[in-house]
Amino acid sequence: MSLAIPPAARDALERWLSHLASVQGRSPATVTAYGADVSRWLDFLARHRGEGYGLAALVQVAQTDIRSWMAAERAAGLSSRSLARRLTAVKTFTDWLAEREGGDATVVLSARSPRYRRTLPRPLAEDAARAMLNEVAYHPEEWIAARDQAVVTLLYGCGLRISEALGLDADALPLPEVLRIRGKGGKERLIPTLPITREAVARYARLCPWDLSEGPLFRGAKGGRLGSAQVARTVAEARRRLGLPASATPHAFRHSFATHLLDKGGDLRTIQTLLGHASLSSTQTYTSVDAARLMDVYSRAHPRA
């Protein structure tokens, strides 16, 4: 089904997406997701009202429009979590548009997101994380085994997102004691690197058959930039051999980095900085993980009458 978005609204959407990518430095995946979310909202407005609309109408939306849209999305089977994300995209777009076109966007910006239960991160136990660091180095080609081990060591040793690790270029060699990472929104952060991490990356660099004087640091079998899907497959194969749950994904190493730091007395502000979280509330999720684990131990070990 084609989307019934008026030309002026479509043009505004394209300008906003360009702004997200070029000015705010949002990732291509984020820009694509936001574009899809807001497109559905603009299409709904056109069909709901039964007529075209100008940009002013996108800013000064009635509460009934918002409620009808959210009800329609839920009726279509959208989860509360996905609807909350979609509403965030609509709010961000409307706020940007109001700054340029004028008007009062209070109704949209004050719309309440549906409540949903946040999924807690599922980190690996320390012994499982160590086992995975060795198990991923399973490939018969020595340089590929070293590459996979270096990538996972970076994820666990520095708490990187998979996109951040695979986005490193060869000019990061030799890996410094403090690594500069450009994360979400183009924000930079500095992360100390452990000797074991630097050694793993150096070993991979020595064995890699491709020229690492320039271009991507981590290479695929044909010399191009290593993709996240290949890393996911490598980690999945390793966890199956070790009998670990499906939650043991590449991203679980980032969760493990944060949780194990917290276990060893790391403070939330420092962990927030290392992870590159814009809000402390994102980092505080790890205190919930710690509390959940404590309650699990308590429920299993506490004497009962």
Rank of each mutant, 00 (worst) to 15 (best):
L244R: 00
G220L: 00
V289S: 07
R117K: 15
V61K: 13
A111G: 02
V136E: 09
E237R: 13
A62F: 01
P123Q: 13
P123I: 04
R117T: 12
S22A: 12
I191P: 04
A229N: 13
R293E: 15
R198L: 07
L190T: 00
D104T: 01
R300M: 09
L217Q: 07
G183V: 01
R293T: 06
M295Y: 10
T234C: 14
A89Y: 05
I191E: 11
W210A: 11
Q230G: 11
P192G: 09
A137Q: 09
R304Y: 04
R203L: 14
V151N: 10
A89V: 00
A291Y: 12
T106D: 15
E164M: 02
L3W: 05
G185H: 08
S22I: 03
R15V: 01
R240F: 03
D37K: 05
A137L: 03
E99V: 02
L17N: 02
G186C: 02
V152C: 14
A9H: 03
S80Y: 11
R198H: 09
R86T: 12
R112V: 00
H302M: 07
R254P: 06
L190F: 12
A305F: 01
R15Q: 14
D148G: 11
A292I: 02
G185Q: 04
R180N: 14
A150D: 09
H19Q: 12
R182F: 03
S113H: 03
G243F: 00
L87I: 06
L226G: 05
R241E: 08
E14I: 00
A232N: 14
T32I: 03
L207T: 06
L97W: 00
E99F: 00
W16G: 05
